[in-house]
Design a protein around this nucleic acid. Structure first.
Lengths: 339, 339
DNA sequence: ATGAAAGCGCTAACAA
DNA sequence: TTGTTAGCGCTTTCAT
């Protein structure tokens, strides 16, 4: 059995409370430097390791944060988690990660489990809109931050990329290359990103003076490669004149590649493709994907900072952080074919 | 404030101890079914959620496992973590994840932090050999499982892929295609996988009757894309006759692609390349990578099962689980060029 | 079958 | 500055 605070106190010839104060930086000021030193030495000698469980029971703080993601194997979330972790660990917190598999029930359970384990704050990177879990969390005053999602109507902290700017940059790039018939493979309308990117696409098409009927939108059931493939098949079948596709994320764009291969079309000669997110490896596919780079690590880091802020000052009012994005032009976009 | 066990007890008109027994499946037998029902209803009514912190303080068990990985953003580890999580959650445990950045100091700190938080068991997916952290853990009788690493000389649980078989399958594939001058880009000799794969390469070269001097080995400083590129440059400069490369992991193989592009060589026409691990997206690069498929999700799932086994029966003796691997032939391998 | 009492290891009033 | 006391919420003897 490892040494407890009482053991340390006894060894240093002081009371447990004094030992506690001596060992805790915040209360160290209340104790005589000499005794503090004795206590520290005794602790060292006994190999004392404080028991955070006992501390938590007393203080109602666990020094841990919960992070809820739809799927840790999605390359999008690894850097987000990494960002959260780095900031949290630096502040003395650790992070409990929970997967939801995009299932509302599992999300509810995981959040409940995290709350039962008394995490001090929560970061949600699950993208569903109108999520009842969130309202409960807000009502219960649990410090939370949303990642990769905006909820303009809710008093809540959030971190997201400037999706509108990303879509605009992508569209203008295609427009400058000469494309006039551009399709959008939209993300699920149950996600905040899907909705925002789609709406911006429509707006910007108008801004550029393109005809809505030349720029079809097909919605993917989920952000997966196969959905991208299915959507592009629909587009090509129904709008053969399209010369470029703007996909709502990289996975959907990669799905497009499969359809091109299967139909003997080449990218970018026959069709230009643009993705969104710049996940790892899309620079290694062929052709290297032109996409919108999003700073996912910073999403996580910023989200963690926002939770910690709330922990420091519970009265602080919510803010939304919008991180800049930038188009990365690679090999999947070029001028449209001559007709 | 949420309801405590005392509140439930009071509401049901019983003592806290009775409420505790009624709510705990293991002790439910000691209590009158009628009172048990009353307690359960009261708990339901008050929305009682047990406080695991208080329970842990008393029982010395936290129902949580620690998972230590070198880098969560490495696509190799996401499925491992996912496997751990799925099994752990199904058994009522949750998982604390810690990154080490491949830094020994950080590994020590993270393990210490996890232990301080009283995790019931640990899973280490960090690959360094002769790791002092491990001996300490063994000495302290902490239930642990090593993942993707074998330590034949240590009495310890481990889960790994059959690396030797993977290397053999890859080499025979190349040999059958007609390659006789095959280079190996080895992983760091500080990792168990690096050592085993390299040794098997040497052995198998002999088995196949190939000359050691025709089959150079270059060791990568780490398992990164850039290291793969650097190693291949060395190989091509010093052994221009080589017609195939077997890389110790996929990232190193992808690094080879970059060198081929930069030298105007084509894969597989000029040089065949084989990877190891079959991480996501290596089927999307160009040419699609021939590689050894490893069941990483199962690594995690099996590791979690092994920890849980130890928790159930602390006296159980260590075992090593070796999971099968299989070569996936894609587009990066072909017959050697005619000379 | 249930209640009483103690205590896990720590911290925070309060008192001295 | 230090000690005393109490208690966080739960489980577990021991007694009834």
């Amino acid at each position: 059995m490892s040494a407890t605070l009482r053991d340390v106190a006894a060894a240093a010839g002081v009371h447990a409370a004094t030992a506690s104060r001596a060992l805790n930086p915040e209360t160290l000021g209340m104790v005589n430097p000499a005794t503090a030193k004795r206590v520290r030495e005794a602790a060292e000698r006994l190999g004392y390791v404080p028991n955070p469980i006992a501390r938590s029971l007393k203080t109602n703080r666990t020094l841990s944060l919960g992070a809820v993601v739809p799927d840790i194997t999605n390359p999008l979330f690894a850097p987000i988690i990494r960002g959260i972790e780095d900031v949290a660990v630096a502040a003395g917190y650790n992070v409990l990660i929970a997967n939801t598999d995009n299932e509302p029930d599992r999300e509810r359970d995981q959040v409940a489990s995290l709350r039962a384990r008394q995490v001090d704050g929560l970061i949600l990177a699950t993208a569903r809109i109108e999520d009842p879990v969130i309202s409960t969390l807000i009502a219960d005053k649990v410090p939370i931050v949303l990642v990769n999602r905006v909820e303009p109507d809710l008093p809540i902290f959030s971190v997201a990329g400037d999706d509108a700017s990303g879509i605009r940059q992508a569209l203008r790039h295609l427009h400058e290359l000469g494309h006039r018939r551009i399709a959008h493979i939209a993300g699920p309308s149950s996600t905040s990103t899907g909705v925002v990117r789609r709406r911006t696409f429509q707006l910007e098409i108008g801004e550029l003076g393109l005809a809505a009927e030349d720029c079809p939108i097909v919605e993917a059931a989920s952000y997966q490669i196969e959905d991208g493939a299915g959507c592009l098949r629909t587009v090509l079948d129904e709008h053969p004149g399209v010369t470029a596709v703007l996909a709502a994320n990289d996975l959907l764009a990669i799905g497009c590649y499969e359809v091109l291969a299967e139909r003997g079309l080449s990218c970018p000669a026959d069709l230009s493709v643009v993705g969104f997110n710049d996940i790892p490896f899309v620079d290694k596919v062929w052709p290297p994907l032109t996409t919108v780079h999003v700073r996912h690590y910073d999403f996580g880091a910023e989200a963690a900072r926002l939770v910690l802020e709330q922990l420091r000052d519970p009265a602080i009012s919510p803010k939304s952080v919008l991180l800049s994005v930038s188009l990365v032009v690679r090999g999947s976009t070029a001028a449209p074919p001559d007709r």
